[in-house]
């Protein structure tokens, strides 16, 4: 944080790391180490990462509990799916991923528009009241989707092209994470965390609270829409019931467990909470019990979440290892900027 020169070294380091991760993953897919089933889990992990980091902007950094994240996700999912269906994209279309990216952008934009629509009136309220409003919004969206004709209603939207393959999902996730990392470290991100810390003081230093609160909410909704678009093109069928209140809670659990205000925490928790239920399949009906107990244990011993507000930085971790004992006392939770 203290260095305002371009941290070229850490940029190169992080890029190399991501490239390596991608290479290993694709080698695994080619070498059949990563089965179709495992690929599906990785894609789900990626979608959950996007959902969690985007909700963390509203809940962790702005500090407002929002319970309608599944609502924004569904808006993005339906918008993106309707677009590719209208364009008659199939899995055979050459360069289908380009259309997918356009669909994701559209889904994100429409979700962001809804975010603004809800945010402007709702963000006048705080805490419990805002939580209730966003909860209500999520339910309204679900009912509307079942009601209007072009979404397929209660029967669901079928035969969406399954063009969200592992590589494109992976890169979209990386892009979202990088964007949100730099967003949090921009002046806008700083102002948003300042509002979380004290909204009266932030007004008193000239910050337009409403503007920045709505901005955080809109950014959060945009990326929820992107995640929804990926989900639609991975599963291939949408039903409004998927995006109910429970879905919002699932995402919130990831954010709280990882640590409100830590993107790294959201990423780790998204991986853990997606993989854990799968890994526990062998325990059949005890699965959810173990899952819940794991959650309770973490909350008992680490109420601020696994990471609190701490962010992991590869370059800092390395420099700490190499310079052990030699003034490696950089402050925790702040850093020059890097993606996990």
């Amino acid at each position: 944080m203290t260095n305002t020169k371009i941290p070229v070294k850490s940029y190169i380091l992080n890029t190399l790391c991501i490239a390596l991760l991608y290479a290993v993953m694709m080698a695994g897919v080619d070498g059949k180490f990563i089965t179709r089933y495992a690929q599906g889990i990785i894609i789900t992990v990626c979608i959950n990462i996007i959902l969690a980091v985007s909700l963390n902007i509203a809940t962790g950094f702005l500090g407002e509990i929002a319970l309608g994240h599944a609502g924004f996700m569904s808006v993005g999912a339906y918008t993106a799916a309707l677009f590719t269906k209208h364009m008659e994209i199939t899995t055979k279309t050459p360069n289908a991923w380009v259309y997918l990216l356009v669909a994701l952008a559209l889904g994100g934009l429409v979700a962001a528009a809804f975010g603004m629509l809800v945010g402007i009136p709702a963000l006048r309220l705080k805490g419990d009241y805002l939580a209730i409003i966003t909860l209500g919004f999520g339910e309204i969206i679900r009912v509307l989707i079942e009601y209007v004709p072009f979404t397929g209603g209660a029967q669901g939207l079928k035969s969406i092209p399954k063009i969200a393959k592992l590589p494109v999902v992976f890169w979209v996730t990386i892009a979202v994470v990088v964007i949100l990392f730099t967003f949090v470290r921009s002046r806008q991100g700083r102002v948003i965390t300042a509002i979380r810390e004290d909204d009266i003081a932030s007004e008193a230093v000239g910050i337009n609270n409403t503007y920045y609160k709505v901005m955080a909410f809109v950014v959060s909704a945009f990326f929820a829409g992107v995640a929804g678009g990926l989900y639609a093109h991975y599963v291939g069928i949408l039903g409004a019931k998927t995006f109910d209140f429970n879905k919002s809670i699932d995402i919130l659990v990831i954010v709280v467990l990882g640590g409100m205000g830590s993107l790294t925490g959201s990423i780790i928790a998204a991986i853990g909470l997606t993989v854990l239920p799968e890994a526990l399949r062998g325990f059949a009906e005890y699965r959810m019990l173990i899952y819940s107990v794991a959650l309770i244990i973490v909350m008992l011993f680490k109420p601020s979440g696994l990471f609190g507000k701490y962010e992991f930085s590869l370059s800092r971790a390395l420099s700490n290892i190499f310079k052990k004992g030699k003034a490696g006392n950089q402050p925790k939770g702040t850093k020059g900027g890097s993606a996990a």
Binding site: M1, T193, A194, E197, D198
Partner: peptide, 11 residues
Amino acid sequence: RLFKELTVLDN
């Protein structure tokens, strides 16, 4: 009224 959890510099 400070931004308590932010650093002195970020305040």
